[in-house]
Design a protein around this nucleic acid. Structure first.
Length: 473
RNA sequence: GUCCCCAUCGUCUAGCCUGGCCUAGGACGCCGGCCUUUCAAGCCGGCAACACGGGUUCGAAUCCCGUUGGGGACGCCA
């Protein structure tokens, strides 16, 4: 068996979307598993819609999810000669012909046919003309087989049979000399010796159109695998109106690429009941046998859960790596530089079980930098009241007696004070929480103290007392 | 309209190929409880599906046919 060669072939007409990433991912996984070659090919033959920004977006998106390629990126616009020469060869061999129908005329006939309830396919009228040297604008059409059947033995869908009479003579070279999609794909997949064409199942009906071209060009026929589509909640193809579909939008919302990959791979593929897979496991366990035939609805809730899971279970240094740029973006550059990586990781471990995205984590992590902490007005108003001043003062006095902060000792002292005063835990805990973090919700108080350290804990408690003393009685 | 694909809880899915182990399992979400200094996390429990109709068979979620429903394709777009 020769080496597996697969490709991801997006067209650069917008951002890299979720569906594209999943297609790329399945190709990549298969290549890595089979020790094969993964090729990136940019299909930019539609010069009116392709942009360089889109190419950048594709590369950026691929990099973010960690899908690296072995060959390319190739751009089809740099391979024009190849398509032209192969097209002309088909003409010379009598397998293609010049068509002088204008786009307008074709459009009109298509409409007419549709109105009559007929198939809108090209009627093949130039096929018999035998034009050898067109004197006007002409497109080259491939002579598609008109009888018999074309069978696609699909890796995912199984055996699919098409009657050739549904095929029409496809334009392979436009009158402007550019190849069309269905032709450039065949030439490239053939020339690049692609062994497995794995793409969205919106291409399934393109396959019987492409197979005869592989044959005509003398290329070996690759295996095909058509992946089910990803749908929005309304069960139509996922698109912009369903919300964020750009892969980079998820980066910006604070998702981890590994969570994204894990979620996406489970959309259409499964391995028993397992939900969470490391990248190594995916490479090992991926199989087309367990790719679902039916389309899947994108479920943001489950993606969010997956992200929370990775936030909670990944190595803290990994989370820090992803979080730090976001903190810098949030204007905390100086604060980050003032702390050690170890402390940063402790902070992450402390807050992470209450965050589902890195963006939420940014919010949760903020109170622990710097000396004093700003209060959320509501929180201060509610808990830093005159009546709390005496007990807070007593707490500070108690803590001051300890030369160092010991979480266990301070907790014990705290609880003793609560008991002495006949208070409920929360009656002291909430004011202290606000004093320490500025908020009513936080990690465990003594974890917070331990992280802040003795001096900052005492400082913030004193500031809390100041604020409470200034409050209206 | 024509062709193609698909069909298990609201969603992602296991099981289907190689019928009985399925009183259909897991996950997300939802509801309830436990834990609890707040917020979470965690743990325990609950609700919830084989689209429908015919066959085949001792027996069908699993095999066959049809119906219905959903999706896709039919461009000098990709």
């Amino acid at each position: 068996m020769s080496q597996v060669r697969v490709r991801f072939a997006p067209s650069p007409t917008g951002y890299l979307h979720i569906g594209g990433v999943r297609t790329a991912l399945f190709n990549w996984l298969y290549a890595r598993q089979q020790k094969g070659i993964f090729i990136l090919r940019i299909e930019d033959t539609d010069q009116s819609r392709s942009t360089d920004e889109s190419i950048q977006a594709i590369l950026e998106g691929m990099a973010w999810v960690g899908l690296d390629w072995d060959e390319g990126p190739f751009r089809q616009t740099e391979r024009m000669e190849l398509y032209r020469s192969h097209g002309l060869r088909l003409f010379e061999q009598g397998k293609a012909y010049w068509c002088v129908c204008t786009p307008e005329a074709l459009e009109a006939r298509r409409k007419e046919a549709e109105a009559k309830g007929l198939s809108p396919k090209y009627d093949g009228r130039c096929r018999a003309l035998g034009i050898t040297k067109p004197t006007q604008e002409a497109a080259l059409r491939f002579k598609a087989p008109q009888e018999g059947q074309t069978v696609v033995d699909d890796l995912i869908k199984g055996r699919v049979v098409f009657d050739n009479n549904v095929l029409d003579d496809l334009v392979i070279l436009r009158s402007n000399g550019y190849p069309t999609y269905n032709f450039s794909v065949v030439v490239d997949d053939g020339l690049m010796k692609i062994t497995h064409v794995v793409r969205g199942d919106d291409h399934l009906t393109n396959t019987p159109r492409q197979l005869p071209m592989f044959e005509a060009l003398g290329f070996p026929i690759p295996r095909f695998g058509h992946l089910p589509m990803i749908l929005g909640p309304d069960r139509t193809r996922l698109s912009k109106r369903h919300g964020a579909t750009s892969i980079m939008a998820y980066k910006e919302m604070g998702y981890l690429p590994e969570a994204m990959v894990n979620y996406l791979v489970r959309l259409g593929w499964s391995h028993g009941d397992q939900e969470v897979f490391s990248r190594e496991e995916l490479i090992e366990k991926f199989s087309f046998d367990h790719v679902q035939k039916s389309s899947a609805v994108f479920n943001p809730d489950k993606l969010l859960w997956m992200n929370a899971h990775y936030l909670q279970h990944s190595d803290p240094s990994r989370i820090a790596e992803a979080l730090v740029p976001l903190l810098e973006q949030a204007g905390l550059k100086a604060e980050i530089e003032a702390v050690t990586p170890e402390w940063m990781q402790r902070l992450i471990v402390m807050v992470r079980e209450r965050t589902k995205t890195l963006m939420e984590m940014v919010h949760w992590v903020k109170p622990y930098f710097g000396h004093a902490v700003p209060y959320e007005e509501e929180a201060a108003k509610k808990f830093l009241t005159q009546s709390t001043v005496p007990v807070l003062q007593e707490l500070v006095a108690t803590f001051e007696k300890f030369p160092a902060l010991s979480k266990a000792e301070w907790e014990e002292a705290f609880k003793k004070l609560v008991e002495q005063k006949g208070l409920k835990m929360g009656q002291l805990a909430q004011p202290v929480r606000v004093a320490l973090t500025g908020r009513t919700a936080s990690p465990g108080l003594f974890e917070v103290m331990e992280l802040l350290g003795r001096e900052r804990t005492l400082l913030r408690l004193r500031k809390g007392i100041e604020r409470a003393s200034a409050a209206q009685a």
